[in-house]
Amino acid sequence: MLKDEVEAVPAPREARFAVPSDGTLIRARNLWKTYSMGEAEVHALSGVSFEVRRGDYVAIMGPSGSGKSTLMNLIGCLDTPTRGEYWLNGRLVSEFSDEELAYIRNKEIGFVFQTFNLLGRSTALRNVELPLIYNGTPAVERLERAKEALARVDLATRMDHKPSELSGGQRQRVAIARALVNDPSLLLADEPTGNLDTATGLEILALFDRLHQGGNTIVVVTHESDVARHAQRVIHIRDGKIDRDEAMR
């Protein structure tokens, strides 16, 4: 049934793989996400449209239940919209299969989570290597790139430590190194400072600023305005719709 709805709004076929020349990285058009709870239908997102350009630093803000997590899952290619088009780096991701989504997540997106989501059994280095393992990077290159990514977040000296042996800020930096190791087109952070104290949170935000200046495109999902203040642009979500889209700097 959901499938039918997707096919009801077909994209112009020739446009599906058009590589945008205008520097647009994300193009969301009329995104809907509907969950059926028994008889009733709940619209987590009802018609969200926006664009993110290459090199942007965007914050998505909203209270809990506003649909910002759902939006993050769509942006992060963990899920597909019920209706609407989601273009990422010239690909119409909203019609991709599970298999293809996994590929996109690996290649185009670097996740940074609130709870870090590191593998507890593996060392920092192994954690950072993981995305490279899933795209078949040869071992020598993998090691080199993982070390390089750890150096970029000033953790070159702690790479043989397990997450439990690292501080919260260090863990988040490992997670950021992991997100960067594949040179993704988008760094997607979900409440990156939520589990950190203020000082460490500021460190992480400073790191984001640095990465942004280095040319990375960053989308941060947060409910803290202190975090959103670092972005160039804030998209406010309320009740599954874009409430306000303001430029900060």
Binding site: G76, L78, D98, E99, A102, Y103, R105, N106, K107, F111, N117, L118, L119, L130, P131, Y134, N135, R178
Partner: peptide, 16 residues
Amino acid sequence: YHEIGIRKSLGARRRD
């Protein structure tokens, strides 16, 4: 479950 979720978010496919 959580570990599997992490691996999938990093691009692990079903067959992996």
